[in-house]
Design a protein around this nucleic acid. Structure first.
Lengths: 208, 208
DNA sequence: TGTACATCAGTGAACGCGCGTTCACTGATGTAC
DNA sequence: TGTACATCAGTGAACGCGCGTTCACTGATGTAC
């Protein structure tokens, strides 16, 4: 009965995926509590309610687990933003930029992971490929948003610039001395708004 | 002879400073070889030609040493840029921005330290104060450059935006997949130029 | 000038810790006949 | 239906390593009388 066998096999495979997912979710929860560079396999295991060695049944090493968490998180951001775009809640660059900033302030650990992987640069081939694909899909979303306002040959450059500017804002002012979190957020939003505005008006001057 | 005593004392103090400096310089040299987060006290000691325990005669702990290295490095950047400004080699925002980018590409370890300290945020009081002062002096240089073109109340916001944008460019594209270092540099310079241009034209439109 | 004492830079060896990862094993479930 | 075997998720304990930091000590130099 080859047919049943494959059904069984896929069921098993699904279970395996589900268990992987449990581990990744646990990791994500721990990331919420402390800087992710300080999160150990033991803590993830404790949070997931399993033994440390069990994690290694599902991930070859720590880096793979963390990259997987990052990739899933990225996918989720992109989906959420896409939903808002589809719902017509994002009509211009400023809206988009605010959502990007707010999301990454809210999911701070995700931003930390992003900058960490951007800085790192000593990842093995397959993991690097996964990360690059995640980066590509973020940039594509920027492209899509900007494409409306610009000539095609201007799109990419401007989306790169905006992407970089937003990341820079998030990193440069996150520990703005003597400011409360709410003030920091407002400052970041203001700077992001300025960046979006500059980008838009520059595109207009170039395109039209 | 209290006078001679103080001379002696200051001489001793100077020697102490000089020895501190030897250690910091050694650290800086090691930073050139590998990501600074991976640099250990043992390596710094080896590079300086002394015992590990000797370092602790001059710095209470690793963080203090690293912060000192960062602060000195920052001071050097600022001085160099100031010199170029004084020599009339920087006449507009685009010039300035290129120098900033190039310097930090060249001194990659310094940029890494900067982002690391920006992300970290769990430093003890006095160290934090040192870092904040360094950050402040960088931002003041941005202010000075921008102040020429803008109304005073616009200066700070724009220098923050530009500072953030440049940092973001440096972090977001440093590992641009499949590009050679020279191509990465050109891309960064292009983006930085775009940022400077946007900033200038926006200032002009606001200032009138 | 000589002697006893204080200071302090410098040191090698050790401490203690936490980490990522591996290993040998258990026990439950599924399979073959 | 019962029995022998294979598979594999899950585990606790251990391995090995590198790290920041401390400690007890040495030896050179300066100081007091």
């Amino acid at each position: 009965m080859p047919k049943q066998r494959t059904t069984f096999a896929t069921l098993k495979e699904d279970e395996r995926k589900a268990r992987q997912r449990v581990i990744v979710d646990a990791a994500e929860r721990v990331f919420g509590k402390k800087p992710f560079e300080q999160v150990s396999m033991r803590e993830v295991a404790r949070e997931a309610g399993i033994a440390v060695s069990s994690i290694y049944r599902y991930f070859p090493d720590q880096q793979s687990l963390f990259v997987e968490a990052f990739v899933l998180g990225t996918r989720e951001i992109i989906n959420r933003v896409d939903q808002r775009i589809a719902a017509g809640r994002i009509s211009n660059l400023s809206d988009f930029v605010l959502i990007y900033i707010d999301f990454l302030i809210e999911h701070d650990h995700h931003f930390r992971m992003m900058t960490h992987f951007m800085l790192d640069g000593q990842l093995s081939g397959p993991l690097l490929e996964k990360l690059n694909e995640a980066a590509r899909s973020i940039l594509e979303q920027f492209d899509k948003i900007i494409a409306g306002d610009s000539k095609p040959e201007q799109t990419r450059l401007h989306s790169h610039a905006l992407f970089a500017a937003l990341n820079g804002i998030l990193i440069s002012f996150r520990n703005y001395p003597g400011r409360k979190p709410e003030e920091v957020r407002r400052h970041m939003e203001k700077l992001a708004g300025l960046a979006a505005h500059m980008c838009e008006s520059h595109l207009r001057s170039v395109t039209g």
